[in-house]
Design a protein around this nucleic acid. Sequence first.
DNA 1: CCCGTGATTTAT
DNA 2: TAAATCACGGGG
Length: 201
Amino acid sequence: MPTYLTRSFYRRDVVKVARELLGHLLVHVNGRQRVSGLIVETEAYLGIPDKAAHTCNGRRTARNESMWRDGGHTYVYFTYGMHHCVNVVAGVEDEPVAVLLRALEPVDGMQAMYRRRPAAKCDTDLCSGPAKLAKALQIDRQLDRIDLVKSKRVFIERIRATPLQSQQVATGPRIGIAHAAEWTHKPLRFWLKNSTYISHK
DNA sequence: CCCGTGATTTAT
DNA sequence: TAAATCACGGGG
């Protein structure tokens, strides 16, 4: 029987959550179709002080409302007129911090993933980017604000009982936030060092 | 390198 | 109301 990550896992410091999500399994069950992938790359967004975060300066809008919810909810946003990106909200209610999921190692439903992502040439192309994984797992704004702790459709399965060794995790600056002044270079991106499924090969 | 694409945000 | 922006991806 699979175990889900619990509320207390998500209700912690967002940097810890970003690191410790690595190696767990993001699952979307849609009817009979189960699609999933191991989380191999994440980024932490630290909320009000973070110039790269959607909730910078306490911005609270219809789009980012779910970032203000309790840890363990999804925050799915739409951008560039065509892409969705999936975040896991961390911390507690009214603490608008989240973890962007940047890459997965496909596990279940790879045939469906190839169908949804005709541009993918091989398994390592399927989910190697935040919008790619959203497309492969068919996650869009309809799955915004989902409670990952309670949902039967979208959840994260605990794969390991104990945290990863720190030597298995690499750290670097976040991608695509050149405008964020002193926040641009902070090491808030995390990935599994030995993974070939990350977004920037 | 450049460009699609349109919701969302920010400036007037 | 108008203009700018955008936590990206695909094709040269």
